[in-house]
């Protein structure tokens, strides 16, 4: 494998907590081995903000809660051959998707923002306003899992996924041997 050109990998965190990026580090010393086969392009790890060229693998943490998430995800889809969602937020929306449960309201988004910034019990917001800086991306009407916005090729479950599972998946993908997960590896605890 060492004669082959290095695989190019990009990563991003959308509506996530960076826990899944931390979980990537959980592969410990195997990371060194992996890095001999991989070059990291656009990623918070390298602080590269735009794709320098097309990538083999894109790793997505988090779902889509605002327009910027959608924009980034679509950009990853256009620039990566294989798109991997890691963690429950990417796969199902995760914790941020709790706001999708505000259903019996004519204006769920307003209700959510007002509780978060104005009316909630432990709020200390002296402005009594919902933040609305022009630089803030617009929120979506609800939190979407990545697979509803673009086609996802592989989804690694867990919150966060185990480092072993991430390593196995990447190693198999790089070797062209990935055939899905063993059922006993897909569990929630």
């Amino acid at each position: 494998m060492s004669e082959l050109p290095k695989a190019r990998v990009a990563t991003t965190s959308l509506a996530g907590c960076f826990g899944c990026h931390m979980a990537i580090l959980d592969m410990d010393e195997r990371l060194i081995d992996l890095m001999s086969h991989v070059e990291i392009d656009r990623s918070p790890l390298t602080d590269i903000k735009r794709f320098t060229r097309r990538c083999d693998i894109g790793i997505i943490e988090g779902g889509c809660c605002n327009e910027e998430n959608v924009h980034v995800l679509q950009d990853f889809r256009k620039n990566c051959d294989v798109l991997i969602g890691i963690g429950q937020c990417a796969i199902m929306g995760g914790l941020p998707a709790m706001r999708n449960a505000i259903m019996h309201s004519d204006e769920p988004l307003r209700e959510c923002l007002e509780e978060a910034y104005i009316t909630g019990r432990n709020i200390r917001n002296k402005t009594h306003n919902v933040p609305n800086d022009p630089a803030l991306p617009l929120l979506l009407d609800q939190v979407y899992p990545c697979s509803q916005v673009v086609k996802m090729d592989v989804q690694i479950p867990g919150c966060a996924p185990e480092g072993d599972l991430i390593y196995d998946t990447l190693a198999k993908l790089l070797a062209g041997r990935f055939r899905g997960f063993e059922p006993d590896r897909v569990r929630f605890d």
Partner: peptide
Amino acid sequence: LRATFDIQSAIDDA
């Protein structure tokens, strides 16, 4: 890209 995802309707409330 998913044709069912409509960004315009998704950001309309916001």
